[in-house]
Design a protein around this nucleic acid. Structure first.
Lengths: 338, 338
DNA sequence: TCAAAATGCGCAACCGATTGCACAAATCTA
DNA sequence: TAGATTTGTGCAATCGGTTGCGCATTTTGA
């Protein structure tokens, strides 16, 4: 029958007031050692459990943060979430995870739910659909800390953690060129998302810096398996098909791989392939797919650290910071022509 | 500056009391149409947002449920979580996700955190390590609804949602036998978990019912890639190696596949292979891996429905229910010998 | 030795919404 | 038309901690 038991119950049992119990449990310096011990002992004895709800109401700090990702089903995001959770646990915060499923409406609805819950802060990566950012701006109005990661918007003036997508793309393409590829295609994503914009930019610059021409014709859009599958078909029908593809997504790279095999072409000899994100399945493919690791777990930790910093600073407006993580090119057989 | 704005602010502006505002916003029947409209309008105008924390404190219902999975990183679990979220959204509940990482200590700690948060209910799948169930029992003491799924404990007398693992195993093995396999190995998991116990049982029964002998020697334990990799090596060194493997996990099946290929054996001609769980990567393998789909999304929905039912029934003890979902054998090339 | 500072704890308001009870006014019933 | 209902709203307590302020009591310092 450990039904409830509140600090008042403890107080009564020890003949002190609830204030004293509260302070004792929170390690307030003005409480004597003896009282604290007595309180702690009695709390344990009565099976007391701190009521975070009540505490949140009075103190204005819920110790909950919200995390919104496009989907938890993608390994990149779930690893970031893992990192966030690790850091949150260390800091004594609870994490609420929600998914936008890449829909603007869901994203907006979730933000509102988090605001109702009075979370102390939000870490988010934007939905693919999102092009209006007022719901994020509203968080700042309501004095709720916000950190964006991966898919961010620079104009919001908010703390962000991103990968150096430009560099990742640049390295990937440079690597392909070093492997002797002369005509490198690119599978790109929607260009209103920073990450895909940067990857395209890195692709272009790498070509230019190595004296290869940029050809609009071999840049295709789409990041899902089917996109890669179909786009690759189209590319292979060109009079001068590409001898390599740098894909902004592991999934479209996978689709491409299937098409290439269906055409009985060899990877990487006929077409070399590099994806992006280091999804676990990439290492199981045949040949294993070269890709770019985004240090997702670290990204989560970094985002959480930024958030907790902001939460602790409270109102005081600091200039917003951006943490940029370095990509890591994982060279596997799909791009190794030696 | 939409800083706060409470029902009191709305009340003041309309010259009524907070009670009236609260009732109006909650659709209380004793509030006149006119008042309700006025309140709603003013609420919108003032950018009012319901404070769930305050509401939870007073009403005793937080509208939050906790979900604990071994890891969100596995597709099976993340799909279950998806299902839970869908249902929770429909019901106006928020979802807190935590991971045990298959560690008993984490599981225990998470449960305590959820209790402090005064969640209305918990949906969980047990950590591999867990063999002591008092922390789950405590939920019942504290009057918090509990639903277990997939990895459950029958003795807790709690609502559960499970797959018919026995049937799935039985079907898989029967299928292998129909394909002409005579000596079928099994990769099993720890036997204190119901799911692995049932899969082993289904494997044995299928053998028996088809007149094949059960041979302890070709049952190996372990569900990770490395386990499959190593166990397959051992099996292939037997004087009479198996001509098929039914693995209780897609991951160990994957490991086996790598070993088999390394030995230049053909799949499925030399060794047929079936996994369990329908992890997305299974369809990308070569050959694509036969496996068993667990209807994970539906499992999540079912678990959530059970939970919300229990929450709404409140104290009234109902006999605990168990929902059993049917597995679906997905026959792919790794087991198709035609 | 005595004023100043530090220590230990209680008082009571408060966070923001919910809700049982009460009560006046309006509506219904016979 | 008077009594019974119904309707619409207010009052005030409450959920369980937190916290600024105040007041003894003890300790410190010169």
């Amino acid at each position: 029958m450990s039904k409830k038991s509140t600090i008042h119950d403890i107080a009564k049992a020890l003949n002190v007031t609830a204030s004293t119990v509260s302070r004792a449990l929170n390690g307030h310096p003005r409480i004597s050692e003896r009282t604290r011990e007595a309180v702690e002992e009695m709390a344990k004895e009565m099976g007391y459990q701190h009521n975070q709800i009540a505490s949140a109401l009075r103190s204005g700090r819920s110790n909950i943060i919200g995390v919104m990702v496009p989907t938890a089903d993608r390994s990149f995001f779930s690893r970031v979430v893992s990192g966030i959770e690790d850091e949150a646990n260390r800091m004594g915060f609870n994490v609420i995870i929600c998914q936008s499923n890449d829909r603007y409406e869901n994203e907006k609805r979730n933000i509102e739910a988090l605001l109702r819950l009075r979370v102390d802060g939000v870490i988010a990566s934007m939905a693919k659909e999102t092009q209006d950012y007022t719901h994020f701006a509203e968080l700042k109005n309501k004095n709720t800390a916000l950190v964006l990661f991966d898919r961010v918007n620079e104009k919001l003036g908010v703390n962000t953690v991103v990968l150096d997508d430009y560099l990742g793309a640049y390295q990937a393409v440079s690597h392909l060129i070093k492997q002797g590829c002369k005509r490198i295609a690119h599978f790109a994503g929607v260009q209103h998302l920073n990450i895909y914009r940067e990857r395209l930019r890195g692709y272009k610059d790498a070509l230019k810096d190595h004296g290869l021409p940029f050809d609009e014709q071999i840049v295709a859009y789409g990041v899902y398996i089917e996109d890669g599958f179909n786009n690759m078909k189209t590319l292979l029908q060109l009079s001068n098909p590409p001898d390599a593809v740098f894909s902004a997504s592991d999934f479209s790279a996978l689709g491409a791989m299937q098409t290439i095999k269906a055409h009985s072409l060899r990877i990487p000899q006929d077409v070399a392939l590099i994806g992006f994100a280091n999804e676990p399945f990439t290492s199981f493919l045949e040949p294993p797919l070269s890709t770019i690791d985004q240090h997702s777990h670290e990204m989560g930790i970094a985002a959480a650290q930024l958030l907790f910093e902001a939460i602790q600073n409270g109102d005081r407006q600091f200039p917003s910071r951006t943490i940029v993580l370095n990509p890591e090119l994982l060279v596997r057989k799909s791009s190794l022509r030696v």
